[in-house]
Design a protein around this nucleic acid. Sequence first.
DNA 1: TTGTGTTTTACGACCTC
DNA 2: GAGGTCGTAAAACACAA
Length: 152
Amino acid sequence: MGFQKERKLESGRKVHLAAELGLDPKQVAVWFQNRRARHKNKQVEEAYAELKSAHDAVGLQKCLLESQVLNLKEQLFEAKEEKRKLSLGINGGASGLSNVTAAGGGSSSPSSSFSVVGDLGLEGVEGDFMYAHQQEHDFNKYMMDWANSYGV
DNA sequence: TTGTGTTTTACGACCTC
DNA sequence: GAGGTCGTAAAACACAA
């Protein structure tokens, strides 16, 4: 029967089809009803499968992003450690960085581009990093002053 | 052969135009 | 009132054990 062409059945068409097939018109009507129901079920199943695959893809992307975040946290931690070691070395070598800082006379706080750290749940790390950054800034200023005072 | 799952047919209740 | 959807029962069919 021509379900693909006509999803719904006009009564004239129904009677004609019934006569053609030697069936009761009621049977033809029921057949079309059932075909429509099956077609609808199939469409729902297809839509579900499509949504499911989209959902799976998003889940996979989430995993990838989480692993990237872990990686970045690790890198940040290592960078922080390196800064800390450097600043300790500097403190040990030059006698008293606090004096240097005082001589520097309060430096301007550099704007940080690490605000994303807070978004990654790394509260506290940003403060440490700013501290190390400040020390480096003070050290550079101290060296410049020293060079100028000795005409280097 | 039989138990089980799937598909098809038919019906009643209810809804919409 | 005709014809639609929805839910469901029963028959028909397919198939593994």
